[in-house]
Write a protein that binds this DNA or RNA. Structure first.
Length: 428
RNA sequence: UCCGCGGUAGCUCAAUGGUAGAGCAUCCGGCUGUUAACCGGAGGGUUACAGGUUCGAGCCCUGUCCGCGGAGCCA
């Protein structure tokens, strides 16, 4: 048995391919079967004198997406898509497919989303999923190589992590529980145990967001590092992002080609990334004619206006304390801003990372929990981290689907995850 | 939640208020190098739903539902 992607290494040999019929063309005594097996596409030529009459007839009855096992001799042929093809020697039907909804013609997104379980079989979706795997593998590899330990955080939580976004409520036997919207607080505890850690898992936001940049359920990577300040935090981010982008360029060139992704902008993604103070970003926006006041949070048009000034991802540093989470460390000498930075991706993809140095002072964290009206009882364990050997520490959250969408230059986040949960969609 | 656009065959889309159409898919037939193959034939419709105007509504009006795009919020 040979994967289609490896067929090119078996020229002149007879190989067995197990897969599904992607498309079929026939010229009477000659059939062209395009097979897919998840690793690629290949054309199998069935001639009346190359296979038995029964196998030839079976080929004629094949419907789109029928599963088959074929054997054939590999031949280089410029007329074949991909340059290699099989001269079929046998064909065995595994299962005859019924009328397949996704035809070789174009379809609308609503229909494709209703058939997401089948849509995943198309070459474009395969390419995106392979790139997604390269991204998560690359992130894990880069972190593991630097001594980070993967520490999963719980999905069922007793209360909000940040007390801001809307949470999904569920029941935990006799009491209420919530689906996690961030693993960060748990990552902080883990960092005090193992030094350098990360959590990678699903997070849930019950916000009625309805844009191409939002998912209800999405995956987030959240590294957390003890004895790390915000400057070091940003170095980690820019080196990790650059490594993964360059790795995808090196290992997934074929998939990027399927997506017709212009790789020139990605090749420029190398450390260091430009940094702009929030203060200066406000001035930049005013200069470009935006109505924007110091203290406002960025909307989509503002992120676009900032990122179009740069070719690489750009850090916006020093946000107003009032618009950021309760746990962020104030700037030295400037309590009105925090040691936090958002990383904005180029080409209109916006925020892919939010990171900060965390408050390590016991009195200040207690004060902030009070100011934000958070239920102190739920945060006792978090406060403990400041009681027992507190150290300066930093971390960040990376949105996996936004990162993948940018690398693939997707129109919509829904294609970056196998089964997207959207505002009006929980099927399939 | 707000603003805008849309819903016709399994799919993608046509159709001056006057007989419901095409391509793809499916089925039948033809073709020994096809490239979203091609050629001939067949079947396939509660025009989202509910009302209304009209001699006559896919088309005009009202309401509802659903979807898409954008905003806000965020990764």
């Amino acid at each position: 048995m040979v994967d289609i992607m490896d067929v090119k290494d078996h020229v002149g040999q007879e190989v067995e391919i197990r897969g599904w019929l992607y498309n079929r063309r026939s010229s009477g005594k000659l059939q062209f079967l395009i097979l897919r097996d998840g690793s690629g596409l290949i054309q199998v030529v069935l001639a009346a004198n190359s296979v038995s009459p029964d196998d030839f007839a079976a080929g004629n009855r094949l419907t789109q997406e029928s599963s088959v096992i074929v054997t054939g001799v590999v031949r280089a042929d410029s007329r074949a898509p991909g340059g290699f093809e099989l001269t079929g020697t046998s064909l065995r039907l595994v299962s005859l497919a019924g009328e397949y909804p996704i035809t070789p013609k174009e379809h609308g997104t609503e229909f494709l989303m209703d058939n997401r379980h089948l849509w995943l079989r198309t070459p474009r979706q395969e390419a995106i999923m392979r790139i997604r795997q390269e991204v998560t593998l690359g992130l894990r590899q880069w972190l593991a190589d630097r001594g980070f330990i993967e520490m999963p955080s719980p999905i069922l939580t007793p209360s909000s992590c940040e007390g801001t976004s809307t949470l999904f409520e569920t029941t935990y036997f006799e009491r209420k529980a919530y689906l996690s919207q961030s693993g960060q607080l748990y990552a902080e505890a883990a960092a005090m145990a193992l030094g350098k850690v990360f959590t990678l898992g699903p997070t849930f936001r019950a916000e009625k967001s309805k844009t191409r940049r939002h998912l209800i359920e999405f995956w987030m990577l959240e590294p957390e590092i003890a004895f790390c300040d915000q400057a070091e935090n940003m170095v980690i981010q820019e080196e990790m992002i650059s490594y993964v982008v360059q790795r995808v360029l090196a290992n997934r060139a074929a998939e990027l080609a399927v997506l017709e992704r212009d790789t020139a902008p990605l090749q420029k993604v190398t450390p260091p990334f430009p940094k702009i103070m929030y203060d200066d970003a406000v001035e930049l926006l005013k200069r470009k004619g935006h109505e924007f006041n110091w203290g406002d949070d960025f909307g989509t048009p503002h992120e676009l206006a900032i990122t179009e000034e740069f070719e690489k991802p750009v850090f916006v540093v020093g946000f107003p304390t009032a618009i950021k989470a309760f746990y962020m460390q104030p700037f030295p000498e400037r309590p009105e801003i925090v040691l936090a930075a958002d990383l904005l991706a180029p080409e209109g993809y916006g925020e892919i990372i939010g990171g900060s140095q965390r408050i390590h002072d016991l009195d200040l964290i207690e004060q902030r929990i009070k100011e934000h009206n958070l239920p102190r009882a739920d945060y006792e364990w978090y406060i403990d981290l400041r009681k027992y050997g507190s150290v300066p520490h930093s971390g960040f959250g990376l949105g996996i689907e936004r990162f993948v969408s940018w690398i693939c230059k997707l129109e919509h986040l829904r294609e970056a995850i196998p089964f997207p949960r959207l505002l009006n969609r929980i099927y399939p």
